[in-house]
Amino acid sequence: MTERAESQEFITGLELQAAKQRLEAILFAAEGPVGVRYLARRAGQSCQATRRLLESLQADYANRGVRLVQDGQKYCFSVPDKLTPEPPQPRPKVGLSRQGMEVLALIITKGPLTRKEILQLRGVTSDKALVSLLERKLLTTKRDYLKKTLLYDLSEELLERWGFTSREELLQEIESRRRGL
């Protein structure tokens, strides 16, 4: 092959790549499936050349996370069924009572507390609120062997749900929100 023929082939390859990129851009920007005539007109080429480019693009995308699919006479990009993300499961609403919120706020700010300490701080018993918070896995219990009582503390699940790694990080966020930062 002569040098001139090789350079012509290279230019044709670049032009082919540019034409494929134009088609990709048109397909990605389209709101739905589009026909060959529309693609050819937008890309400035013949319908036959557009069909060949679409076949080439289909081959390029055959083993990727996005595929170029033909629906009748129209084309669009689609995600294979096995890669379609699962719809997010609705989270049940927490719906804590006022008493539950007060107990949770005390434990967040004052640290692990016994039932007696919660009673002293709130002035009323909080047994139902504590049971509710434990059932929802928002609190955990730890045995304090010296005082022979249970300590109620934040659960790792609560911190994880709220996106914190530690109580200190949660307290810093609360303080910055209180200051309006």
Rank of each mutant, 00 (worst) to 15 (best):
E168A: 14
E24Y: 12
D71R: 14
Y75G: 03
T2S: 15
L113K: 02
R67F: 02
G163H: 04
A105G: 06
K137Q: 13
E102I: 07
Q8S: 13
V69N: 03
N63Q: 14
V36N: 07
V79T: 13
Q48L: 08
Q99S: 07
Q58N: 03
G123P: 04
A40Q: 07
Y152M: 06
D127E: 14
P112R: 08
G111M: 05
Q58P: 01
R179C: 00
K137I: 03
W162Y: 10
L57E: 06
T84Y: 10
P92K: 11
E157L: 08
R136C: 07
A18M: 10
G123C: 05
R91A: 14
Q45T: 13
R67P: 01
I118D: 00
K148R: 12
K82C: 14
L139Q: 05
P80K: 00
G13P: 03
L134Y: 09
P90V: 05
Q99H: 08
F28L: 07
E160P: 04
K110D: 06
K110P: 00
E157C: 03
L130V: 11
R136A: 15
G13W: 11
S46R: 07
I11R: 13
R22Y: 06
K82H: 15
L139W: 06
L158D: 00
L68D: 02
L181V: 02
L171T: 01
L121E: 12
L106K: 05
C47I: 11
G95C: 04
A49I: 00
E173L: 01
I26H: 14
G111L: 07
T114N: 04
T12G: 08
L39I: 14
L104I: 04
E31Y: 06
L16D: 11
R4A: 14
K93P: 03
F28R: 09
C47L: 08
A5H: 12
S7V: 14
L150Y: 10
L27Y: 06
L138T: 03
A59D: 13
R178D: 00
R177K: 04
L16F: 12
L119V: 04
L154S: 05
Q48P: 02
V131N: 07
T114S: 15
D153M: 09
I11M: 11
K74M: 10
Y145L: 15
E6G: 05
L159D: 05
F28Y: 09
D81L: 10
Q70P: 07
G100M: 01
E160H: 09
D81M: 10
L54Y: 11
Q70L: 11
S126M: 02
G95W: 02
E156S: 15
F10M: 08
L181R: 00
Q172D: 11
G72H: 10
R167Q: 08
Q58S: 07
E6I: 08
N63P: 04
T109C: 10
L159C: 08
G123N: 03
R136D: 11
L57F: 13
G35S: 08
V103H: 03
R52N: 09
P90C: 03
S132F: 06
L158M: 09
T165D: 13
E168C: 11
R178N: 00
L83Y: 05
L83H: 05
A19K: 12
P85S: 12
L181Y: 00
Q120R: 15
S7G: 08
A18N: 11
